[in-house]
């Protein structure tokens, strides 16, 4: 479990946006995992199991904050998300372009993007972790990637060779 800490922290940082809150989330995840270790099925992946626990804790935490209520259920792809506490915090800290871009993505797309794009889980594994059908994972991933691309394209310190490379933009 200790060996998983770096990856758990990275996922938590992606979810929460701040290192302190990420570490709180990792700690809570480890505590819960240890308490529930009886329910871990040997031979299955410990990392998937722990990511799932973290994911649930994070969702519950967001729900408990009660400010986001409706945004967790259903898809509202083009609706502007309200500025929540996480994003306000991000705005205060001088975040690097990609992390700022990540924070601008809807929570439900962000989690998929992090699991597959950053952590390298397969679509099926991500679907299991998130309790979603694979189709939903695929579409959220595409939507999240599109938003990440948009946000980074507009970012001043462009990490790519130059603008005009991407197709299909107005």
């Amino acid at each position: 479990m200790v060996a998983l800490l770096p990856r758990l922290r990275r996922f938590a940082l992606g979810l929460t946006g701040s290192v302190d809150r990420a570490d709180d989330l990792v700690q809570a995840t480890c505590e819960r995992a240890i308490r529930a270790i009886d329910r871990f099925v040997p031979g299955t992946r410990l990392d998937s199991w722990m990511f799932k626990i973290m994911q649930n804790l994070h969702r519950n935490a967001i729900r408990d904050r009660a400010t986001e209520g409706g945004t967790l259920v259903g898809n509202a792809p083009d609706a502007d998300q309200p500025l929540d506490g996480e994003r306000a915090l991000d705005a205060r800290l001088a975040l690097t372009a990609a992390r700022r871009a990540l924070a601008s993505i809807d929570a439900e797309q962000r989690e998929v993007l992090l699991l597959i794009g950053v952590e390298g889980f397969s679509y099926e594994e991500a679907a299991t972790i998130l309790d979603l059908p694979v189709g939903t994972v695929t579409s959220r991933l595409a939507r999240g990637r599109a938003k990440l691309r948009d946000a980074l394209e507009l970012a001043p310190n462009e990490h790519l060779a130059g603008p005009g490379l991407t197709g299909g933009r107005p």
């Binding site: 800490l5 770096p6 990609a98 990637r145 990490h159």
Partner: peptide, 26 residues
């Protein structure tokens, strides 16, 4: 490139030793 940059930035933010409290918790 976006995802590589994102991964690198997350890793950079977490550079340094893992907080003692986490290892201890486990």
């Amino acid at each position: 490139a976006d995802e590589a940059a994102l991964t690198a930035e997350l890793d950079r933010a977490l550079a340094g030793p893992i907080p003692e409290r986490l290892v201890e918790t486990v």
